[in-house]
Design a protein around this nucleic acid. Structure first.
Lengths: 229, 229
DNA sequence: GGATTTAATATGTCTGCACATAATAAACCC
DNA sequence: GGGTTTATTATGTGCAGACATATTAAATCC
């Protein structure tokens, strides 16, 4: 039974790779040869192989052909939800408190991360997110006032996190994950012992070339970020 | 100047979304209309819009048409390299020590994670990875002996991590990231104070339906996992 | 022999067309 | 009116053919 449709072709190619019919590092037949074998157009094979190359299973080069990747770069995609949805997705009640909000001169690490002139005034927001009334996440955000509308939103009523998703949606940025010990301030706010291990997410985002925000999220112990490969 | 090629079309569509020509939630013109506007075939527009839908910027449904996503792409892809390449990529010298290797009855959390019968014997490997001679990562791995060849590889000469990538490459699995305080044992091996905040990666992998391995990676402080959105 | 030009080739992309499919809107019936 | 059937329509996928492009291998020159 020959595969029909590009998805079945993709599955068949993957099967042959798993079965070691095509060993890691080996060249596989050309698109034309596979198209003939499967009785379809080259474009259909191209679609299947292209998708596999995108996930890192195959490596393709013009003229050189297609080969099975030697060390498949384990590539994972992870979804980063809005905090409210993340909490509610666990079946817990969401809430938050705005701890602090002030416009002040941003420290050098913040401005350099965003590529802004040092000494610029940014809006700093500290927000504690709650799950079932218990501390879940401490958000320390620096926001570029240039992205705010004239009557600035009330961040005590809508969290900065959520406001940004709704109003400055199509951003690019970078993310870093790490671990850190809770400072005295973090420990107190999160209700932990000083030095407790926190999961840290740091994000900086731009809208086109305009710096929007940089944020440090400190998750209370027990938090796990999951994904499937 | 009309865009040429599907990549330029993708860029132009993205530009219009950023510029709010097409607002979040709004319908955009049909493929046919855009093809006419850009002077290309519908397939070319289709390719561009499909890519944008894959990254979560657009939402497409047959008959209903294509609309700008309301709550967009909090989606990141991250590459998970082999530890050796990760260390070398920072310009540091890589090394590792096999601390412990023994075949023993796996504890229940391990077997249940892999979907194996409780009490099964698995190979436990504890490996310390070094960067410039200093502790970088503590690997605690449980390996299904069924995936090993008859003369088992010498995991003191090649790290389990690297052997698996080369010999059981095309696996599926799940990954979780979290933070934890160093246990007494971890602190000693990594040369840290007890309770130091460690970045934890837990992975379980299968080859087709065969459980291969589950591993806990404890990174020394200072490690950051980065990605770009 | 070594460097440079030229030819060969697999993938990348595009076109124009066709039909399939899913989801909606319209028509219909009771 | 309410529920069911029947068009309608935008996207999804397919085809054959064409040309572009990157890269390798062969041919050429000094």
């Amino acid at each position: 039974m020959t595969p029909q449709g590009w998805e079945e072709i993709r599955a068949e190619v993957l099967r042959r790779i798993h079965a070691r019919d095509w060993a890691p590092g080996a060249l596989i037949p050309t698109e034309e040869a596979l198209a003939q074998e499967f009785g379809c157009a080259r474009a259909t094979v191209n679609r299947a192989l292209r998708e596999l190359a995108e996930t890192g299973v195959l490596e393709r080069r013009r003229k050189a052909g297609t080969r099975v990747a030697l060390s498949p770069p384990r590539r994972a995609t992870l979804d980063i939800p809005v905090t409210r949805l993340e909490v509610e997705g666990r079946g817990q009640a969401y809430g938050f408190h705005l701890l602090e909000q002030r416009l002040r001169e941003a420290p050098a690490p913040v401005t350099s991360r965003l590529g802004l002139a040092p000494g610029l005034e940014l809006l700093q927001l500290k927000t504690l997110h709650l799950a079932d009334g218990r501390p879940f996440l401490l958000e320390d955000r620096w926001l570029n006032p240039a992205v705010l509308p004239d009557p600035a939103p009330d961040f005590a009523a809508i969290s900065a996190n959520e406001w940004l998703v709704g109003h400055v949606p199509y951003t690019t940025g970078d993310i870093a994950f790490s671990a850190a010990s809770a400072s005295a301030e973090e420990a107190e706010v999160l209700g932990l012992a000083e030095g407790a291990a926190l999961f840290i997410v740091e994000r900086s985002t731009w809208e086109r070339d305009l710096p929007v925000t940089t944020v440090r999220l400190a998750y209370a112990p027990g938090y796990r970020l999951r994904t499937v490969v």
